[in-house]
Every structure is written in structure tokens, then in C-alpha cells.
């Protein structure tokens, strides 16, 4: 059981690495493909424990489906927040409109990967930066004005919790 799982992980790693090898090299003759197979299989065998750590392949598939629904929504939120911060920076009465503040709350997300995704998504949305995040879920967020600070934690936390199945 353990051995077959390790073998399948090594094979998946090899496929991912070889895909990137073909994109980056751009040469499809026999010499370069042989070099690619050799080096990718060596790296996939050595790094089998690093890349894929989820307990089963069904979990990974579920997470990727969740991510593919989450990423377009996140991109749209990033565009909206970017336009807001751009108007703030270019406005003439900027000093009266900004109100820098630090918000503290405890997130309900438990898994480590979920917390990392949550913290990175908050930082990627302009107007809010994650200042500190602990493994227990305590977050400190620096927000540039009241309008950016209002929707936290809110919708984003619920969507991430749904991906990681909590």
C-alpha cells in the first residue's frame, strides 16, 4: 500500500516536471528529450516527499476543483480593489480620505494550507496587508481606509473554508 502510493506520487511528479521541462526548453529532438527524461525522473525520485503532501488523490482533485472556482472570483476582487486604491492615490484630497488602521480577528480556518492561502489572498487584494498570522488563526491586518477594512474576514474566509472542506 505504502509503496504503490509512493510510486504513483513519483510518477505524478515526473509528469508535472516534464511538462515544465518541455515548456522551458522548447526543443523537441531526441537528445533534449532524453536529457529531460533523465533529469526529471532523478528529481521526481529525490523530491517525492515534498511536492504532494495531501493524504489521497481524491483530496487533491477536490482542492484543485475548488481552486479553479476560487481564482476567477479572487482576480475580480483584485481588479475592483485595485481601481479603488488607484482612485484613492490619484485623488487630490488623499490625506482626508485615507485612514490607516490595524484590525485584529481570529479566523475559523484550521488547516495550515488554508491559512497560507487566506493570508496571501488578503495581501494580494490592495488596501489590506497581512501583518501577522499565527498557526491558531490569529490575524492582524493593516488596512489603508475604512472601505477596504469593512469586508474582512467575510466572504473570502467562507470560500477558502469551503475549498479545504471545513
Amino acid at each position: 500500500m505504502k509503496k504503490t502510493r509512493r510510486k504513483s506520487i513519483v510518477f505524478t511528479n515526473f509528469l508535472i516536471l516534464f511538462f515544465f521541462w518541455m515548456i522551458f526548453s522548447g526543443k523537441f529532438d531526441a537528445f533534449h528529450l532524453t536529457l529531460g527524461v533523465l533529469s526529471c525522473s532523478l528529481v521526481a525520485w529525490m523530491a517525492a516527499d515534498f511536492l504532494i503532501t495531501a493524504p489521497s488523490f481524491a483530496t487533491i482533485a477536490k482542492q484543485w476543483i475548488g481552486f479553479s472556482k476560487y481564482i476567477p472570483w479572487l482576480l475580480w476582487q483584485i481588479v475592483l480593489a485595485n481601481i479603488h486604491v488607484l482612485r484613492l492615490v490619484l485623488s487630490r484630497d488623499m490625506n482626508s480620505r485615507i485612514n490607516p488602521q490595524i484590525i485584529k480577528f481570529r479566523s475559523t480556518i484550521k488547516s495550515q494550507m488554508g491559512l497560507v492561502t487566506f493570508a496571501n489572498s488578503i495581501t494580494l487584494t490592495p488596501g489590506t496587508i497581512t501583518v501577522a498570522a499565527t498557526t491558531y488563526g490569529d490575524m492582524a491586518i493593516h488596512a489603508i481606509d475604512n472601505e477596504s477594512a469593512a469586508p474582512l474576514p467575510g466572504d473570502m474566509e467562507k470560500r477558502i473554508a469551503k475549498i479545504f472542506g471545513e
Binding site: V79, N82, V85, L86, V89, L90, M94, P100, P126, I144
Partner: peptide
């Protein structure tokens, strides 16, 4: 336009933390 906004924000905003909003995120966009 977003690059210009990020650069202007780095000059205009009052302190280090709020400059980082403009510098990091508008440049990414």
C-alpha cells in the same frame, strides 16, 4: 496607468506601511 499610480503612491502616502499598499499591489496589477 497602474504603474504610474503605484509610483505616485510611493511619493504621496504618509508612512511606510501605507506606501507598501501602493508599491506592492498596484505594481502587481
Amino acid at each position: 496607468v497602474f504603474f504610474l499610480g503605484g509610483s505616485l503612491g510611493m511619493i504621496r502616502l504618509p508612512d511606510f506601511y501605507s506606501r507598501l499598499h501602493a508599491a506592492g499591489m498596484l505594481d502587481t496589477m
